[in-house]
Write a protein that binds this DNA or RNA. Structure first.
Lengths: 262, 262
DNA sequence: CATTGATGTTGCAATATGTGGCAGCGAACC
DNA sequence: GGTTCGCTGCCACATATTGCAACATCAATG
């Protein structure tokens, strides 16, 4: 859409966005009607604001308004419902790349959780993850040794993050890593929401023998702000549907193999 | 347009869902009538909400309301059912020893999980734990910063343990620690099942400003093999029923205060 | 085991909300 | 000055949510 030349820094719109996000983190949810009255703009304008923020992944749109991802337990479970079939297919394909005896790193996220489910078919794996849900799930599978990375928990991801996590990661010798991401940008690169996330994933690419990104089709063409370091050294990107041709070509230029799960 | 038209400031659907699930995990069950009154919506609406959540497998609908599934692992969930009332009382008493702003260590185990539940009444705590369940639960409570200790997961405890965990523990400055244990032996000492567990608890006693053991009455008079180092330096032992007199006297000889929750 | 009050179910209408098209307006640019 | 572009509001129409009412079920009690 917009040729990325410069960000239009209007005075009014960003002010609304800030306030919307502030309210969201304070109250958990906001309604379109309430915001329209507060800013004295039309409801359409508010909806456009919410759509924008939603595309950036900063909130979730619901009937009547928007809800924050953070404080709500459903956020994660709801997200894991979205495109469940696609994620399951990605999980099976990912599991096909793993052999018994390997050391596997699993990133946090709903798509990697699907990979975790698929991995239960295997035996004798060492799993390394920062995700509480994944650890909790896989630790009961016979033959799996699960290591959890320490750190401060990010409630949105339900996973550890931060300095301690980066630190702990470096101690492992990882055969294959499955990483999530915020978006598959039109120029064929996986991007992330946060600085910390991008850094963590970039490091894991460097650490792992092979690193695959797992992204379901809802992430295609979205835009998130952070590039992931070392992306071109990743082994592949596993998706559940063919991206458009431009994206395929852009990706093939970068290096990582495109794998479409069926 | 919108000249202050009468806007019912009703809660958005996801907000209701969050609250319903929150109540479920707190109380185990909710009633349609109570929810309808709370949200000021009709009972049909509540039922539709419950139907939706039920379709997602997040609760079970029963006549009159809904009940929590607690889709947890049998080993752990079975244990947490035992003497639930006693554990809840211990939890409340333990929470009474905590003040806003403190750094709290929570050991793994079902009794400490009850403490975690009780701590949700507080705000502005830093939690440090090796237990996946505790981390997962508390990370969604507003005002809580949760740190998880890294390490290999023990499936029975659903918590990290081992060298890495001991290592990570040492980095924290802990105000108050709540520790589990295998048994309260007849000679007034808390003992443990495993060498690793005893070592970890002993270290935490040394690290924390105050360390309390939380033990429900099913642990009285049992015998487990490992003594816990530094036990005499613990601040107290919180239980849910009076132990017999000999045990009380033996304990008072050692040092830690005996606290009986009501 | 029958009664009775509470609860669950269904169809429907009212209202609120979402969507897409279009035009006005102001800022930036040529 | 004219043009373009993005933001905004208005409108018409599609969709979703909710409450009501009538009826079916359930479960506790005597």
């Amino acid at each position: 859409m917009s040729p990325v030349s410069r960000l239009p820094v209007r005075a009014l719109a960003p002010r609304r966005h800030d306030e919307i996000l502030r309210r969201l983190s304070a109250q958990g949810s906001v309604s379109v009607a309430e915001l329209a009255e507060f800013f004295d703009v039309s409801r359409e304008t508010i909806r456009r604001d919410l759509k924008l923020l939603s595309d950036q992944g900063r909130l979730g749109i619901v009937h009547g308004g928007a809800a924050s991802f953070e404080p709500s337990e459903p956020a994660m479970s709801l997200r894991s419902q979205e495109n469940a079939a696609g994620k399951a297919a990605i999980g099976r394909t990912a599991a096909g790349l793993v052999r018994d005896g390997m050391v596997v790193f699993l990133d946090s996220g709903t798509t990697t959780l699907a990979v975790a489910h698929a991995l239960t078919e295997l035996r004798d794996l060492t799993i390394c993850t920062a995700s509480l849900k994944i650890a909790l799930h896989l630790c009961h599978v016979p033959g799996m040794r699960v290591h959890v990375l320490g750190g401060e928990i990010d409630p949105g991801e339900e996973a550890a993050s931060g300095i301690d996590t980066l630190d702990a990661m470096a101690r492992f010798r990882v055969d294959v890593a499955f990483l999530g991401g915020g978006a598959l940008s039109p120029d064929g690169e996986v991007t992330d929401f946060t600085r910390a996330g991008a850094e963590q994933r970039g490091r894991m690419i460097a650490l792992a023998g092979k690193a695959y990104f797992v992204l379901d089709s809802s992430k295609f063409g979205k835009l998130t702000p952070l590039r992931i370091p070392n992306f071109e050294r990743a082994a592949g990107v596993i998706v559940d549907a063919d991206p458009d041709l431009a994206l395929v070509e852009a990706l093939s230029q970068k290096g990582p193999e495109l794998i479409v799960a069926s």
